[in-house]
Amino acid sequence: MANLFSAIGMDETRTFRGSWFSHRINLRVMALIILCIAILILLMLYAITLGAVPLTIRQVWDATWGEGDSRTLLVVRTLRWPRIGAAVVIGAALALSGMLFQGIARNPLVSPDIIGIDAGATVVAVSWIILTRDTSGLPLVTFLGAIVTAMVIYLLSWRKGASPNRMILVGIGISSMAGAVTSFMLVKYPLEQIRPAVVWTMGSIYGSTWRDVVIPGAVILVTLPFAILLMQPLRAMSLGDNVTKSLGIPLESTRLAVIIIGCALASVAVAFAGPIGFIALMVPHMARMIAGPQSGGVLVLTGLLGGIMLLVSDTVALHFLPVSLPVGVVTSAVGAPYFLYLLYRSNSSM
């Protein structure tokens, strides 16, 4: 494991061993969390002032607290804040799910979106959009699609326990099948019907309402405490199954708990934003790089960084590109080369 971390630019072997059984809250991590919260707040305050309707900071501030004309209130409270909020919570959910999955897979190159959950959710969402044209029920069906896919992958990977590597390979098999059905739907139906579906598959958070903030936010609030508690056994598990057992940690149930939480987070993200790639993959790396190996504090930091990343990506996609693009295109364009670089580095050092 250690050489892998050094391979991806985190020469943390010493810290890794030194803080192994430490329960103390690392002061450095604490400072980083506070810093990230500050950055996140500043970014949100900056993003809220951007938009087609010119508003002063004063107007935005007043409107946020309910003062101003109805037009300003609509822009600030109904349009801008939900979109910013959705970017933050969905980015956080993605990053957290990635951290949890990389923890159990003991492989820093996986994330729930890569191993099939997004493909499963996509086939359900695309079919739903094409066949019903209804967007209000979409998040719920997509969520169910993601959860069912996750369950199928888990069950098919089960063979005296669910080996993480088996999950990756089974997940890629499921992805191929789901991808085939998605392609089938997109080829079968005429342009008018598939266009909204095609745009959905690119991953986007436009048209967010407060529902898109509250539900993913609630899922994070419910799961985060459990996830933090699970970080300790997860760290032990990274030493290998035997070490884990000798420490008296129930291997399979810990793994299952992590998978359930990770899948819930990934599913809620894909349900409300479509398949936004690479946040789940990249952000945990960044968090470990700046704050050291996984711990409850680093997990919180990962969530914050995920929120920052998606908010920045969406703001760039919406306001700073010559043509507006779905945020998923932006995250892929940045994230995929980064991933391939990681893969390249982890290979060459072996």
């Binding site: 992805s175 690119m202 892929s332 364009a333 995929a336």
Partner: peptide
Amino acid sequence: ALAGVVMSSLLSSW
């Protein structure tokens, strides 16, 4: 497998 999935994802986003 991972390199293939990610390369696909990158090219499809472009």
